[in-house]
């Protein structure tokens, strides 16, 4: 890390957070009327939108149909203006395809797909503004959208990106911090099950446990925030419908 001090001597990060502190999360559910479920989330400066359609009949080729559970279909894309450097294509590049696959695997682990045989659930996420932890923010947004669509899940899927700087694990990385080592973890917090784990960095084995612990703690923090969002949303909706 040339020239950029990610963690000050006093233990503060670039944006003034402590090492284990999350960014401010603001989320809203049910932002679009046409989709079955939708959610918008802001985590610091990263903003993402998730939309869920389904469960519905299989679309397109029917040979993907699974007779015992639903197919989860994901598309991850980034708005062309979301990054500092303009992107040429919103989706279809290698990174987006990989992200789509990861999302699919994550939600196959969480959604109770066996309840909807021979059907399909579409999850589309879009990053509107990218500032680190894109994947995690998208997972959190998609979780809220699935809850909004009323599709049963085993648990919230909470994701967080953590990094390792100066022997200290940092939670919820922003873009500047992400250039170092980073680990993305998606957790089903109640059972402590890991839905996705991905690390793209070189890290000594001894540090791995500390990093994983930090990631789990951060994910649990995220789950608390998401739970609050869902409860608040339900309260608002129930007031509006007069129940």
């Amino acid at each position: 890390m040339a020239g950029l001090e990610l963690l000050s001597d006093q233990g503060y990060r670039l944006d003034g957070r402590k090492a284990t502190e999350l960014r401010k999360v603001q989320a809203r559910m049910g932002v679009f009327a046409q989709a079955d479920g939708s959610a918008y989330i802001e985590q610091g400066n990263t903003k993402a939108l998730a939309v869920v359609y389904g469960p519905h009949e299989m679309r397109g080729s029917r040979n993907r149909t699974l007779h015992d559970r639903a197919v989860i279909n994901c598309q991850y894309s980034m708005a062309t203006f979301s990054t500092a450097e303009r992107k040429r294509r919103p989706h279809g590049d290698r990174k987006s395809t990989e992200m789509s696959l990861h999302l699919k695997q994550t939600f196959e682990a969480a959604v109770m797909t066996q309840l909807y045989p021979r059907s399909q659930i579409d999850i589309y996420v879009k990053v509107l503004q990218a500032d680190g932890g894109n994947y995690s923010v998208c997972v959190n947004a998609a979780t809220l959208a699935i809850i909004d669509a009323g599709i049963p899940m085993r648990d919230y899927v909470c994701a967080c990106t953590v990094g390792f700087v100066d022997e200290t694990p940092l939670a919820d990385l922003c873009f500047a911090e992400e250039s170092g080592s980073s680990l993305a973890l998606a957790l089903l917090p109640r059972g402590g099950q890991i839905a996705l784990l991905q690390m793209d960095a070189q890290l000594h084995q001894d540090h791995l446990e500390a990093l994983m612990d930090a990631a789990m703690t951060a994910c649990k923090g995220v789950s608390k925030v998401l739970d609050e969002v869902v409860r608040r949303h339900l309260q608002e909706v129930s007031v509006l419908t007069g129940e």
């Binding site: 679009f32 046409q34 989709a35 939108l49 939309v51 359609y53 679309r59 279909n73 598309q75 894309s77 708005a79 062309t80 919103p90 989706h91 279809g92 579409d122 589309y124 879009k126």
Partner: peptide, 16 residues
Amino acid sequence: FFVDCSANATPEFEGR
């Protein structure tokens, strides 16, 4: 100019 008809708008727009 570039118009991105994203799949968010409608599932018909998925892929290409």
